[in-house]
Simulated scan of single mutants.
Amino acid sequence: MGLSDYNLSGEQKRNIAHFASIVRLALADDIITEGEEKLLKRLAKRFHILEEKHKEILENPNDYSIETPHSYDERIEHLYDLAMMVFADGEASKLESEVLRKICIGLGFPLNNAEKVTEEAIHLILNGSDLDDFTKAIKQVNRI
């Protein structure tokens, strides 16, 4: 985290941490495909991440810790973004699934249910679910 990061608002820091998690997932197989790069650029724009910060995160995504959103719906939305990255290159590797499961735990999903939530998230994205359908299904799988 650079010196300039200390002046960021809480929301900006959370967006950067979430984006770094997405980058870690994209780099799970050590390359960023064209599809993954397109999704990263779209998400960077959505999260208001400037080009310089975007490059910095791409170079060192592990420098940013996972920040768990307080809201359950926000956690599910973050999971949705992450699951979308798994399929940005058109396939889901075992390594990407493992990284997604670890991040799922970091987002606050229960350890004993993380595998089930991860599998459902991947299944939902594979079937083209939108955020609303994704949220409903994850809530069913992860009853709290």
Rank of each mutant, 00 (worst) to 15 (best):
A83R: 01
A44D: 01
I22Y: 04
N15G: 06
K55C: 02
N113R: 10
L100K: 14
E52R: 14
Y72F: 10
M85W: 13
K136G: 01
R24F: 07
I105E: 10
E67S: 09
I31A: 00
T33G: 12
G35K: 07
Y80M: 08
S93N: 03
L27K: 15
R75Q: 15
Y64A: 05
E77A: 15
L82Q: 10
M84F: 04
M1E: 08
L124Y: 02
I144S: 14
F109W: 07
Q12L: 05
K41H: 09
V141D: 01
I31G: 00
F109N: 09
E96I: 10
L95Q: 14
I76H: 01
L131E: 08
S129R: 01
A44N: 01
N15I: 04
N113M: 06
S21H: 02
A83K: 08
E115V: 10
L131G: 05
R101L: 03
N112L: 06
K13N: 11
S21Y: 00
I49K: 04
D63E: 14
Y72D: 12
F19V: 08
K102P: 00
I103L: 15
D30W: 03
I22L: 06
P110W: 07
A121Q: 01
L82K: 03
V117P: 03
L40D: 04
L95I: 10
K53V: 09
Q140R: 10
D63T: 06
F19W: 11
K116C: 07
H18V: 05
L50N: 10
A20C: 04
D132P: 01
A92L: 15
